[in-house]
């Protein structure tokens, strides 16, 4: 707020006091929100770190399995068997609220299938194919969990950042400026009061 634009009136002072009070309570609430979000973030961070480690391991295993299956059966056989997949996994996206942040909840169905529901014939395939399919089903499950946690983390981080900016803006800019303005108005009002007292004294002296 530019001081020149401020009208140094009593009503403005009352308004300012109200705004300062509001800003201070907002600042306190936002600080609490920021701290709460950080707590939530760290809770999820550990979980996400574990899932990421599991995801890396699952990816490595799946790659090894498909490489082995491709070597033993040929890529041609692996590709042909992959064509027999008849149902794609379904993903249902819902969400829940963490301190005003909407985070996703991903429910998946049909990722892990029993051997006889994968779509390929059992007699014409072998354990190399089964284990590759197993490993990739596991990988997809891990990807879904990781996606949920990492999106949650990303959203929480964004919100923490936003809240932090707001807290800082209130703490270091808005509230100090309001206080300065309030001081200026008070000073101006006192000045006006002194002027009028002085003027009254002058009038009184002249009348004598």
């Amino acid at each position: 707020m530019v001081l020149q634009d401020v009208k140094p009136t009593r009503s403005e002072l009352i308004n300012l006091k109200k705004r300062i009070k509001l800003s201070e309570s907002g600042h306190k609430l936002l600080k609490m929100k920021r701290d709460g979000l950080i707590l939530e973030f760290f809770k999820i961070l550990n979980e996400a770190r574990n899932v990421r480690t599991e995801l890396d391991a699952a990816f490595e295993l799946a790659t090894d399995k498909i490489n082995l299956a491709s070597a033993v059966n040929g890529v041609v056989a692996v590709k042909s068997t992959a064509f027999s997949t008849k149902e794609n996994p379904e993903i249902e996206l819902s969400g829940h609220n963490i301190m005003g942040v909407f985070v996703p909840k991903i429910n998946s169905t049909g990722v892990r299938k029993p051997l006889y529901e994968r779509g390929y014939g059992i007699i014409g395939t072998n354990a190399y194919i089964d284990e590759t399919a197993d490993a990739f089903e596991d990988l997809v499950e891990k990807i879904i969990t990781a996606a949920e946690l990492e999106t949650t983390m990303k959203r929480l981080l964004n919100e923490i950042e936003k809240t932090k900016r707001r807290v800082n803006a209130l703490e270091f800019k808005v509230i100090p400026e309001l206080i300065d303005t309030m001081k200026f108005i008070r000073f101006a009002l006192e000045e006006v009061e002194r002027e009028s007292t002085f003027r009254l004294k002058r009038v009184k002296a002249r009348m004598k």
């Binding site: 008849k86 006889y116 779509g119 390929y120 014939g121």
Partner: peptide, 13 residues
């Protein structure tokens, strides 16, 4: 069109 696994097994047999 829906029972490919069964058909594959039957073809092998």
């Amino acid at each position: 069109g829906t029972n490919l696994a069964y058909i594959e097994n039957e073809l092998d047999k």
